[in-house]
Design a protein around this nucleic acid. Structure first.
Length: 911
RNA sequence: GCGCGGGUAGCUCAGUUGGUUAGAGCAACUGGUUUACACCCAGUAGGUCGGGGGUUCGAGUCCCUCCUCGCGCACCA
């Protein structure tokens, strides 16, 4: 049953094998099972053309850990995979690809272009999921969903139509954020404010009625002068009061424009006079509406100037026109000054150029269920981890503005909207909105625009489960898995995605209802917990990017460290909620730990002379093999530590403290088990009367460790599970229920065992004694000698008993041939511990000076502690106000420290 | 401008509701083939917890303030 293990762990031969086995045996399948609790995570769908990044590694490792943990708890778990069509991102890529081949998308036409996008998606679509598999992610691949699938598209259109009918969606001509590269409207969220160095020009416009008199105006955008239809000042500004109602000459094209008064003008800024360009600025547009100003749009959709800008500017790019307009002002003698200036400019997220405020016809959405969405998070019905992101979320909802959901693109869901041919589109009577389309299609033409990608992915948690459907099986699944449990994503998409999914869930997952109760909210939310990961950066704290070349290929890392090594390594350096400074060196620990675990199991195996015990049962069965009468203090200690660790892991999962998880398990397996228990075992394994019992304890600890580690390191633990013979035939560790800390305690009680608390404390003292002995050996350059003689002056009879009881282990671990007990020792280097003073019995004379120095240093340290302790205890207020157990603790502490100090002083004197 | 998060050992970070002499990993240094593991073992060194003030018997931890780094939102043309 058990197989022999190699000297070191080789991930390559192990990982692919188990992944295949899991998948072949349906271990990832999420199915409805009313007998069991459900657990579901919907993967944040990567862009269909994306490839695996370190961000994905982190994100999906976390999800896989949560999934595997849920399965260990007997839950029926579904991890739903899928990809996003990423409308604008994909279209930009495909357009570029076509341009490289010398093809313009317009020549191709809409239908052919969309076909190309489909080909592109199919070609690139599988890549990221192939890569994810090498990481060990346990998604239910049978259920892969693409947001452009027919069924998914039906969900999207259905939602659009429903919202339209409910009055949340409308069409209108308003100021929009326009990307001149992608030539489409954007939502507020797709605009990134970026500081830009530019110029601030101050110019003067001549008054029409008083030639020779001028009004000074400042601007950062002289290229829009041609679109000016007024100059505005503040109504209370005494400098300009008399000018309101008069006119000035707009320099080019030369035309009279009025001076108006509007409160939106800031008197302190610039000259206090503002050129008003209603077609090219949000504020100006609003001023224009208030004063009924003409709107002169001087820009084309690609950011070049049009004929309204005048002959000399027509066809010129906006930034070139800016320079030229400034030059023109100078030539006309109207430019007063030019200053260097830095301001924030909105950039298109995809187009990477400044957006242009522009008046366009778009489809808009008023968000439904805003109050409920706030309540869901405020009341913890949806919990954020870490909590602080709640503020960001609530702030956005409190300042929410209508969502521009139409995009002037071709790749995406085309709006289910038809207009009567040749009729006025602004008249609702001429607009048809439905999933199926009009009955007489020949009289209608469909809207050209497609939906914002996020207006499809906001339905992800339920559209993936087939909503809406009349099919009984589909409805059952939705009911069973929804609301899902956890969402794992980055805080950068709180607005884009997280908030909108919550809103969509509240609106659609139940009957149409204006207001929701808390109970309604609980049923409708898309997920109960949101875990926000940090961002992966390099050691300098820079974002990972292709251009910086600081972004390692996860596949190379998997090749070097193994998938499990990488998973462990990345979790180990990923503090909850803050960014991760990544370097290869920092994840080496994961690979090293895999090897350590491997060898711990290997050692256990080598100890059993090839005849492994019957481990194929449960933890209870292993406990049954332990004879507690034969257990010494170390056995009690490691069993207690196993329970403690299991308990701590339970708490950490509850709190989503996943990087603490790696620290805890590393400490336990490496620090407690390997460094102490296994080493202590070595003296017992020679004793036939103790050996079997010791191995049973080892089996218990290893079995529990493999299970606790499995969510983080699935492949190696599954391999060792099989190699150690812990698994029953045809069963996987992955599917084996984990015994809880309470379960272990109950099993121990059933076996009639109670752990000796005193023994646990004694081991800490024994460890201290051993460490002191090792240190003193190192000091005298005999660290590697295994045959030194130690002398111990025990602190008291009880301490001496503890040392005697663990004598073999102490000899073994300290590397001593003999240990003698004496009442006092002369002329030997010693070190003080709680159990007593340990001396190195040297044949040669000791270095008195060095020894004095060492002891003095120790003495100084203790002196400080004693002073602090005494100060505390001499303080009346401390005695009277601090809780009694704290005072007691301080007293005990002081007594121990004083004893140590006295002992060291005695040692010093004896030199 | 408003908000959020950092500043603890050379580096990266832990540090529960305030309560022993502030911890870990990596790096450094010293010594090591010991019933598994050099992807290892043992040991050493290294910190007035960003500055200042306050609350308290007691502060890395709570409050105020300042400095500094990063991020988000808003924005004056």
């Amino acid at each position: 049953m058990a197989t022999e293990l190699n000297q070191s762990y080789d991930p390559k031969s192990v990982e692919a094998k188990w992944y295949q086995a899991w998948e072949d045996n349906g271990c990832f399948d999420g199915e409805v099972d009313e007998e069991n609790d459900s657990f579901a995570i919907m993967i944040p769908p990567p862009n269909v053309t994306g490839i695996l990044t370190m961000g994905h590694v982190l994100n999906n490792t976390i999800q896989d850990i949560l999934m595997r943990r849920a399965r260990q708890q007997g839950k029926n778990a579904l991890w739903q995979p899928g990809t996003d069509h990423a409308s604008i991102a994909t279209q930009v890529k495909v357009e570029q690809h076509l341009r490289d081949k010398g093809v313009d998308k317009r020549d191709l036409g809409r239908e052919k272009f969309v076909e190309t996008c489909w080909e592109w998606s199919k070609e690139h679509g599988g890549i990221i999921f192939k890569q994810l598999r090498t990481l060990g992610t346990s998604c239910d691949w049978r259920r892969e969903v693409f947001t452009m699938d027919d069924r998914y598209t039906q969900s999207v259109l259905h939602a659009f139509v429903a919202l339209y009918k409910r009055g949340y969606i409308y069409r209108g001509r308003y100021m929009t954020k326009w990307c001149p590269v992608s030539k489409t409207a954007l939502s507020d969220e797709e605009v990134i404010m970026t500081p830009q160095k530019g110029h601030f020009w101050t110019m003067r416009y001549e008054l029409v009625d008083s030639p020779g008199e001028f009004l000074q105006i400042s601007t950062t955008r002289p290229e829009t002068i041609m679109g000016d239809t007024a100059v505005a000042v503040h109504p209370d500004d005494d400098r300009y009061k008399d000018l309101v109602g008069k006119k000035v000459w707009r320099p080019f094209p030369r035309e009279e424009i009025p001076i108006i008064a509007d409160e939106a003008v800031d008197r302190e800024f610039g000259t206090g006079a503002l050129k008003v360009t209603p077609a090219h600025d949000q504020v100006d547009y609003e001023i224009g509406l208030r004063h009924d100003l003409p709107i002169v749009d001087v820009l084309n959709e690609d950011g070049t100037l049009n004929h309204l800008a005048g002959e000399e500017f027509e066809g010129m790019d906006r930034f070139e026109a800016r320079k030229k307009a400034a030059l023109r002002l100078e030539e006309l003698g109207l430019l007063i000054k030019t200053e260097e200036y830095e301001n924030n400019v909105g950039f298109s997220e995809r187009g990477k150029v400044p957006i242009e405020p522009r008046l366009t016809d778009q489809w808009w959405m008023k968000y439904p269920k805003i109050e409920e969405a706030k309540r869901a998070v405020e009341k913890g019905i949806v919990k954020f981890h870490p909590e602080r992101w709640e503020k960001v979320y609530l702030h956005w909802l409190n300042n929410i503005r209508d969502w521009a959901i139409s995009r002037q693109l071709w790749w995406g869901q085309r709006l289910p909207v038809w207009y009567k041919k040749g009729a006025d589109r602004n008249d609702p009577a001429n607009v048809h909105v439905s999933v199926e389309g009009p009955a007489d299609p020949e009289n209608w033409e469909q809207e050209e625009d497609v939906l914002d990608t996020w207006a499809s992915s906001w339905l992800w948690p339920f559209a993936t489960l087939g909503w809406p459907s009349d099919d009984e099986k589909v409805r059952k699944e939705l009911e069973y898995f929804y609301p899902t449990d956890d969402l794992v994503t980055g805080p950068d998409i709180i607005f884009f995605w997280v908030a909108r999914m919550i809103i969509a869930g509240l609106e659609f997952m139940g009957d149409e209802k204006k207001e929701l109760t808390d109970d309604d909210i609980e049923e409708r939310i898309p997920f109960k917990n949101v875990y926000f990961t940090g961002m992966i950066r390099d050691l300098q704290g820079r974002k990972m990017s292709k251009s910086l070349g600081n972004s390692p290929d996860p596949l190379d890392l998997i090749d070097t460290y193994g998938a499990d090594g990488l998973r462990f390594g990345i979790m180990n350096i990923a503090p909850k909620g803050s960014d991760i400074l990544f370097s290869n060196e920092r994840v080496e620990i994961g690979r090293n730990f895999c090897n350590k675990l491997w060898n711990a199991c290997r050692f256990r195996q080598m100890s059993s002379d090839g005849a492994s015990g019957d481990n194929t049962g449960s933890q209870e069965a292993i406990i049954g093999q332990i004879d507690f009468a034969k257990c010494d203090a170390f056995d009690h200690w490691i069993l207690a530590r196993t329970i403690e660790t299991t308990k701590r892991v339970e708490r950490l999962f509850q709190d989503y403290e996943l990087s603490q998880l790696t620290h805890t398990l590393l400490n336990f397996v490496w620090g407690d088990f390997c460094d102490w228990y296994v080493e202590a075992s070595k003296s017992k394994l020679n004793d036939d009367s103790l050996k079997a019992n010791c191995l049973a304890v080892q089996d218990f600890v290893l079995r529990q460790s493999l299970q606790l580690l499995h969510p983080i390191m699935p492949h190696i633990t599954e391999e060792l599970w099989a190699a150690m013979g812990f698994g029953q035939k045809d069963s996987f560790l992955m599917q084996t229920t984990l015994l809880s800390s309470e379960g272990i305690e109950a099993s121990l009680a059933k076996a009639g065992a109670s752990l000796d608390k005193a023994a646990v404390m004694h081991i800490d003292q024994v460890k201290e004694l051993i460490t002191k002995a090792r240190a003193i050996k190192a000091e005298y350059n005999v660290a590697s000698k295994r045959d030194v003689s130690l002398i111990i002056t025990a602190a008291d009879a009880q301490a001496q008993r503890v040392v005697e009881e663990n004598l073999d282990t102490i000899k073994k671990l300290a590397g001593a041939e003999s240990i003698a007990f004496l009442d006092s020792v002369e002329n030997a280097p010693g070190s003080v511990s709680a159990l007593g003073t340990v001396y190195l019995d040297l044949a040669s004379a000791i270095d008195v000076e060095a020894e004095k120095e060492r002891l003095s240093k120790e003495l100084a340290k203790l002196g400080k502690a004693i002073a602090a302790g005494e100060g505390k205890l001499n303080n009346e207020s401390f005695i009277s106000k601090a809780p009694p157990q704290v005072v007691e603790g301080a007293k005990k502490q002081l007594a121990e420290t004083v004893a140590k100090r006295d002992e060291i002083q005695r040692l010093l004197q004896s030199l």
